[in-house]
Amino acid sequence: MLTHFQYKKLYANTEIPGWNISFYFNKQKFHGIYHQNGQIEWTSQIPSAEDEIRLIEQIHELMLFHVYDH
């Protein structure tokens, strides 16, 4: 499970979508860019293929809740 999830707008102009994200998973910190289409561009180490699938699902849920549903 990922913890300490944080997101911040990528651009100062709020009309342009994109977010910097960071979180911890298995005691390692990960960073990435969450694009409007749901694609994640990792800016830190890339999680293992198995972990990445689970993490992407969790990140999508968090972004839907925090950014799109509030």
Rank of each mutant, 00 (worst) to 15 (best):
Q36L: 09
A12T: 08
K8V: 14
K9I: 03
M1V: 12
D51S: 05
S48I: 01
L55N: 07
Q58Y: 01
N13A: 12
L10M: 03
L55F: 02
F30G: 07
Q6L: 12
H31A: 04
Y11P: 07
T14D: 13
I56M: 07
I40M: 01
N13I: 11
M1C: 12
E41D: 03
D69V: 01
I21W: 00
S48Q: 12
L62N: 05
F23D: 01
H31Q: 09
G18P: 09
N13P: 08
Y7V: 03
K9D: 06
Q58E: 14
K8G: 10
H35Y: 08
S48T: 14
P17V: 13
E15D: 03
G18Q: 07
H60L: 02
F5V: 11
H35M: 07
K27F: 15
P47M: 03
E15V: 02
T14E: 15
L2A: 07
L10R: 02
H60R: 13
E61P: 05
S22T: 04
L2D: 04
N20Y: 10
F5D: 04
Y34C: 00
L64H: 14
I21P: 01
F5P: 00
S44Y: 05
N37F: 00
E52C: 12
H4E: 14
H35Q: 12
K27A: 14
E61N: 14
Y68C: 08
P47W: 01
K9G: 04
W42C: 04
Y7N: 10
E57I: 10
Y34E: 10
Q28D: 10
L2F: 10
Q36P: 01
T43M: 05
L64T: 04
Y24M: 14
H35T: 00
T43E: 04
I16G: 01
S44Q: 06
A12C: 07
I56W: 08
H70G: 15
Q58D: 08
H60E: 09
N13C: 04
K8Q: 15
S48E: 15
T3G: 03
L10Y: 07
G18C: 08
F5E: 00
K29G: 06
E41C: 01
F23C: 03
E50L: 07
K29R: 15
F65T: 15
E50I: 06
Y24I: 08
N37G: 02
H31G: 00
T43Y: 05
I21H: 01
Q45R: 12
I16S: 02
Q6N: 14
L64D: 15
Y34T: 07
E15Q: 06
F5Q: 04
P47I: 00
I46K: 13
K8F: 13
K29Q: 14
T43C: 12
L10H: 02
H66K: 11
T14A: 13
P47F: 09
Q45G: 14
Q58T: 09
P47R: 04
Y34V: 08
I53C: 03
D51T: 10
L2C: 02
D69P: 07
V67P: 00
A49I: 13
I33N: 00
E61C: 10
F23T: 05
Y11S: 08
I53W: 00
H60Y: 07
H66G: 10
E50K: 06
S44E: 05
K9H: 13
E50M: 00
Y7T: 03
H35E: 11
Y24C: 06
F25S: 11
W19A: 11
G18R: 09
E52F: 02
